[in-house]
Simulated scan of single mutants.
Amino acid sequence: MELPEFKVEAWLNKWEKSAQYDISQSSIAALTLEELMTLAGTTSEEFFGHLAQTPLDYGWIEGSPEFKQAVSQLYQNVAPDNVLQMNGATGGNFLALLALVEPGDEIVSMRPSYQQLYDFPKSLGAEVKFIELQEENAWEFEVSKLAQVITSKTKVITLNNANNPTGTYLNRQQLEEVVALAKKVDAYVLVDEVYQPLEATDYCPVVDLYDKGISINSLSKTYSLPGLRIGWSASSREIADLFRKYRDYTTICGGVINDALAVLALQCKDKILARNRQIMAQNMATVQEWLETQPRVSLVGGQGVSTSFIKIEMIQSDTEFCRQLLQEKGVLLVPGSAFDKPGYARLGYCCQPEVLKEGLKRLGGFLAGK
Results as ranks from 00 to 15, higher is better:
residue 92 G to I: 06
residue 93 N to H: 02
residue 93 N to V: 02
residue 97 L to W: 00
residue 100 L to N: 08
residue 101 V to T: 03
residue 102 E to A: 02
residue 102 E to R: 05
residue 110 M to R: 13
residue 111 R to D: 01
residue 112 P to H: 11
residue 113 S to P: 01
residue 113 S to A: 14
residue 114 Y to N: 11
residue 114 Y to G: 01
residue 115 Q to G: 13
residue 118 Y to K: 10
residue 118 Y to H: 15
residue 118 Y to F: 15
residue 121 P to V: 03
residue 121 P to A: 03
residue 126 A to D: 09
residue 127 E to I: 14
residue 128 V to G: 11
residue 130 F to G: 08
residue 131 I to C: 05
residue 132 E to K: 15
residue 132 E to Y: 15
residue 134 Q to T: 03
residue 134 Q to V: 10
residue 134 Q to N: 14
residue 136 E to C: 10
residue 137 N to E: 15
residue 140 E to D: 13
residue 143 V to C: 13
residue 145 K to L: 13
residue 145 K to H: 08
residue 148 Q to G: 02
residue 150 I to P: 00
residue 153 K to A: 14
residue 154 T to S: 05
residue 155 K to V: 02
residue 157 I to T: 11
residue 158 T to Q: 07
residue 160 N to E: 07
residue 161 N to M: 12
residue 162 A to P: 15
residue 163 N to L: 05
residue 166 T to R: 06
residue 171 N to F: 14
residue 172 R to T: 15
residue 173 Q to S: 12
residue 176 E to K: 14
residue 178 V to S: 01
residue 179 V to A: 05
residue 179 V to F: 01
residue 184 K to L: 10
residue 185 V to K: 09
residue 191 V to F: 01
residue 197 P to G: 05
residue 198 L to W: 11
residue 199 E to K: 15
residue 200 A to I: 13
residue 201 T to W: 06
residue 201 T to V: 06
residue 204 C to G: 00
residue 204 C to W: 02
residue 205 P to I: 06
residue 207 V to I: 06
residue 208 D to C: 08
residue 209 L to C: 11
residue 213 G to F: 03
residue 217 N to A: 11
residue 218 S to Y: 08
